[in-house]
Amino acid sequence: MGDSNQTSPGRFFLLGLSNVLYLQVICFIMFLIMYITALSGNILLILVVKMNSKLQTPMYFFLTNLSLIDISFSSNIVPIVLINTVSEDRSISLLGCAVQMYIHMWCGGTECILLAIMAYDRFVAICRPLHYQTIMSKTICACLASISWTVGLGNSLIHTMLTFQLPFCKFHVNHFFCEMPPFFQLSCKDTHTNETVMHVAGQIIIMCGFFLTIVSYVPIIFTIFKIRSSQGRQKAFSTCTSHLTVVSVYYGTIMFMYLKPRSTYSPEIGKIVSILYTVVTPMLNPIIYSMRNKDVKDTIKIKLFRQSNQGKIPSANT
């Protein structure tokens, strides 16, 4: 009876990260900590931006969008991973798998474009400060954010539809969530068309986003060299290095997953790479991009902690 369930065409079976018990425990704890950190960090950033009028700038408008993406990214994948780690039944319905892939691709494509937009925003702020308010007006920022979400949505819709039109002969997915490259290995049909579409879309969205980010940062770095204060120059370099590190990890892992030919794809390496951009990057983004900012830290200390402490002070009438 169990074997018949394992071959049901209506469900897929996620093999997860490991079948070794102690590794499952380690993975569960690790994923739970990273998920709580990512969720709390990104929610905190959104609240802080809303509470402090000084932070309602184009940069923090885009960071709020990035936080929404990261919350969706992690929440789409990590809870299912946690459940599957402690559950004997690791099956997922065809519809559930399609929805997970759709949200994952939507968030991934949107983040690629948004990171490039954020780099451009920093370029304008540092290299064209006198024209910043005009170039990065509220209307333009809203349009740029809408474009990133719309392109990500359209890209995701195309890939998800093409993937789930394939006939599948296998239903055991050697991965911890529904992602395209492992799914191509389950198909009875040649997936050359799907892989071509994936590579073309990846080159347009991922490579263009990465290229625009680098192009934006080159003049930023040259401008930083002109800063006379060594302390100011060091601080600016520290910020740029942090940003570029996160961007490089994200783009690098996405390129590895979606631009490599199928013949060189390794399921085990693919799992590790997927962890980096689905769990680690959403956890690091709010810390790297904003938690080191003085205005953010002051808002957390003054408004959030002061309000929570005031709530604990007993009334004089009690």
Score class of each variant (00 low, 15 high):
Tyr102Glu: 09
Met51Pro: 01
Val86His: 06
Asp70Phe: 05
Ser74Ala: 14
Ala145Asp: 14
Met105Asp: 13
Ile126Val: 13
Leu144Ala: 15
Val151Glu: 14
Asn174Arg: 05
Ser87His: 08
Asn84Gly: 10
Met59Asn: 04
Glu111Asp: 05
Ile126Met: 14
Arg128Pro: 01
Ala116Asn: 10
Gly108Asn: 13
Val48Lys: 03
Cys97Phe: 00
Ile135His: 12
Phe73Gly: 02
Phe61Arg: 06
Met161Arg: 09
Ala142Met: 13
Met59Glu: 08
Ser67Val: 00
Thr160Ser: 11
His175Met: 08
Ile140His: 15
Val81Ile: 08
Val124Leu: 05
Ile147Gln: 15
Pro79Arg: 06
Gly152Ser: 11
Arg128Trp: 01
Leu130Met: 05
Arg128His: 08
Asn174His: 04
Ser53Cys: 01
Thr139Ile: 14
Ala145Cys: 15
Ser75Thr: 13
Met101Pro: 01
Lys170Ile: 00
Arg90Gln: 13
Leu153Arg: 11
Cys112His: 10
Leu153Asp: 11
His172Pro: 00
Thr160Arg: 02
Phe168Met: 06
Met118Asn: 14
Ser87Thr: 08
Lys50Arg: 12
Lys50Asp: 06
Ala145Thr: 13
Lys54Asn: 12
Lys54Gly: 04
Cys107Ile: 07
Gly108Lys: 04
Phe168Gln: 02
Leu162His: 10
Cys141Val: 09
Leu166Met: 10
Ile71Val: 07
Ala142Ser: 15
Val173Ala: 03
Leu94Ser: 06
Cys112Pro: 03
Ser74Glu: 05
Met161Cys: 11
Thr160Val: 07
Cys112Trp: 03
Val173Tyr: 03
Arg90Met: 08
Val48Tyr: 03
Asn65Gly: 13
